[in-house]
Design a protein around this nucleic acid. Structure first.
Length: 717
DNA sequence: TTAGGGTTAG
């Protein structure tokens, strides 16, 4: 057996020069004779070729290569090409070795070149694939129709793509079906849907792959209806039978168009034509049902599926999260765990989103630990989900820490942090990160500005708010949406510039919604502007006569202005229309269990202890000079009754429970479904000081971080 | 005096 190849055999010859192996070891007549006789005699693949096909690693291949060099068989282009093909295309191969061997082949064929190009493409070495093609051209090697599919796959932009497209046309290979299929795909991936469609329309021999590719391209570029039209044309006019990929692509289009009827039609087709066991198809069908809002239909498919993989679990978990059924999503993950199936970064991102919505910080922390323990790859999306979860669960310090640990951040990561900081009352910090984002060259989007404007609103930064709002369209070309207008109305209104806020609403390019007008009404309450309040409320009641918040707010405004009759009438109108103020409800998570309290709740099994703590709280508060703020209590109550009513608010019950069931010094975290009332707000400030506890209350709008007698909201909420 | 290699999907 010959020794393995040494380095001197690997010296790459200069381009277009004579092959050094050939000049140093001219092929002898006897070697040629031996090759000829071996092929003629056996009339079957040479043993060396058979051996190459059986190779399982590079060490074995190198031995065969050496043998071939000794016998001279290497100088037969066909046999040598097999060595290159193995090194280029097999997982255990080596592209580098393939390139070295290639440089020593006296007369490489297009087959050999194609193997190397495909090897580069398969390994995502796209630039190398194109450079190798260039090298081929320089050396005068002629491509063939097999060359272009891999080359088109390696084109990363339309400029490269057009050049290769031109080449293929000049060389006469652009009409090959395989080349055209990859060409369409290339144009679509480079964002040139029109070019892709031109190729498709001109194709003479459209195969099922051509149709699938074009349908997929329309689905990808948000033309789902065209994708579905093409599918119908394919089966009805052209009599082409779809395969699994066609069905996957058309389902993707249906899901994007939220076309439930079409999804059901495809589902029937799948069942009728026996595609039902195809795993990819089933997962896409589940996804399509979820996107059309039929989570139960997806779940039926999931539960009855004979084969499930991680995609199936992820789609179903995400489906439940999108359906706001967070508990069911978490239950599915538990089921995964009992079955010993590990989640991946996609599973984790969905579950973290569920935690964010549930404000379940403890569970979120557990998932973070799970991600670290299982060494799950934290990519930008998962990192952003972690930042978002920590920020929206009130753990802004950890959110900042995770943010800084992320090696790569995108606009969504920055936005999650800015929104989180704004929610937590760290407005200056939020605006600093926005500045930093600009310095780093990350372009903000519409959602980033929701965070920026929220930060300005919560801190009372009026001029900055107006300036940022104007910069949206002036500097970034982003058209403000109703959400941005709402934020600016809020900023102006809180600053007492009610007339300007009203003018802004008048000048908006869209009709105001209940959030915009609600913001105005809230501002009117703060500044006691009764006239503007009545105008806003009138409009609000026209838009949404069944929103109880409007009546409550208006009635409170009347009360503050001592207009008792009007206040009473507003409440009566609310009752006449069959509406009640939704009950306030507060949650607190202690040792992984969520405890829920409504106003005056005595259903908790530790109710008597909670009441004792509540009495202790109230007496300590009174000793410290606390006077209950009765402005937001029903007006037809006796004064003592009002005090009792206030002391039984759900957030006070939850705080009392938190004080007695968590260890000394531990922060208390409460989530409330409504806006925190002004009495609870001032009481909690004092409680944080009297009991030396950080208390974090997340209400409907934002976080209130109470510490040492103050709140992070600084009165803006 | 040829052979063999290339396309679409969650």
């Amino acid at each position: 057996m010959a020794a393995p190849l040494t380095l001197q055999h690997h010296i790459k010859p200069p381009l277009s020069s004579e092959n050094p192996l050939l000049t140093r070891n001219p092929t002898s007549a006897s070697t040629i004779g031996m090759i000829a006789s071996s092929i003629d005699d056996l009339n079957q693949p040479h043993p060396c070729i058979v051996s190459i096909e059986k190779c399982s690693n590079m060490s074995q291949l190198k031995q065969i290569h050496a043998q071939m060099l000794r016998t001279g068989l290497f100088f037969d282009p066909f046999t040598a090409s097999k060595i290159v093909a193995f090194c280029s295309l097999q997982d255990s191969g080596s592209l580098q070795y393939a390139r070295l061997v290639f440089s020593q082949i006296p007369n490489p064929t297009s087959y050999t070149c194609n193997s190397i190009i495909r090897g580069c493409t398969d390994k995502n070495l796209h630039q190398e694939a194109l450079l190798f093609y260039q090298e081929m051209m320089v050396q005068g090697l002629i491509p063939d129709r097999y060359t272009f599919p891999s080359l088109f796959k390696s084109c990363r932009n339309s400029s490269e793509g057009k050049q290769i497209h031109c080449h293929s046309t000049k060389l006469g290979f652009a009409s090959d079906t395989y080349a055209q299929n990859t060409l369409m795909n290339m144009y679509s991936n480079c964002g040139c849907l029109v070019s892709a469609r031109k190729v498709f329309d001109k194709m003479e021999d459209k195969t099922v792959v051509s149709w699938a590719t074009m349908i997929g391209a329309h689905a990808q570029w948000d033309q789902p209806n065209e994708a579905v039209r093409l599918f119908d044309r394919m089966i009805k006019s052209e009599n082409v039978n779809p395969n699994e990929v066609t069905l996957v692509n058309v389902l993707t289009a249906c899901a994007r168009a939220r076309d439930l009827a079409m999804v059901k039609r495809i589902h029937e087709y799948i069942d009728e034509h026996g595609f039902g066991r195809h795993v990819v198809l089933n997962t896409v069908l589940m996804d399509a049902y979820c996107k059309c809002g039929c989570v139960q239909l997806a779940r039926d498919l999931f539960d009855n599926a004979q084969e499930k993989n991680l995609f199936s679990w992820n789609i179903m978990i995400n489906g439940h999260v999108e359906d706001s059924d967070y508990e069911e999503a978490l239950l599915l993950f538990r089921e995964m765990q009992t079955k010993g199936i590990k989640g991946d970064k996609v599973t984790m991102a969905s579950l973290l989103l569920a935690c964010t919505h549930l404000v379940a910080l403890e569970l979120g922390k557990w998932l973070h630990a799970y991600i670290m323990k299982q060494r799950i790859d934290v990519d930008v999306a998962l990192g952003t989900a972690l930042v978002d979860m920590y920020a929206k669960c009130g753990s802004i310090g950890t959110a900042i820490q995770v943010f800084h640990e992320m090696p790569e951040k995108d606009v969504m990561t920055w936005t999650a942090l800015i929104l989180g900081l704004a929610m937590c009352g760290q407005s200056e910090n939020a605006l600093q990160y926005f500045e930093e984002m600009h310095i780093r060259g990350v372009k903000p989007d519409a959602i980033t500005f929701v965070g920026v404007l929220a930060a300005c609103s919560h801190a009372g930064f009026v001029d900055e708010g107006i300036s940022h709002f104007n910069s949206m369209s002036d500097t970034y070309g982003i058209h403000p949406t109703i959400e941005h207008y709402g934020a600016l109305v809020d900023i102006l209104g809180r600053a007492g510039r009610i007339a300007e806020a009203e003018e802004l609403i008048q000048s908006m390019p869209m009709a105001p919604d209940r959030f915009v007008l609600g913001g105005l009404l809230g501002a009117c309450r703060i500044h006691g502007n009764l006239e503007a309040a009545e105008r806003a409320a009138k409009q609000l009641l026209e838009i949404d006569p069944y929103h109880s918040g409007t009546y409550v707010l208006l009635s409170n405004i009347y009360k503050s202005s001592k207009k008792w009759e009007e206040a009473k009438r507003t409440r009566e109108l609310m009752a006449e229309r069959g509406m009640k103020k939704p009950p306030g409800c507060s949650q607190i998570e202690v040792h992984g269990v969520v405890h829920e309290f409504v106003k005056g709740d005595s259903s908790h099994r530790q109710s008597s202890e909670i009441n004792e703590m509540l009495e202790d709280m109230i007496s300590k508060l009174k000793n410290a000079g606390y006077v209950p703020d009765k402005s937001e209590v029903l007006f037809d109550m006796a004064e003592e009754e009002k005090e009792t009513e206030l002391s039984l608010h759900s957030e006070k019950l939850a705080i009392a429970f938190g004080l007695l069931s968590t260890s000394v010094g531990a922060p208390i975290r409460v989530v409330k479904n409504l806006r925190i009332c002004s009495d609870c707000h001032s009481a909690t400030k004092l409680i944080s000081k009297l009991y030396n506890r950080e208390i974090i209350v997340r209400d409907r709008n934002r976080f209130h971080h109470f510490k040492d007698g103050t709140c992070s909201c600084r009165g803006f909420w």
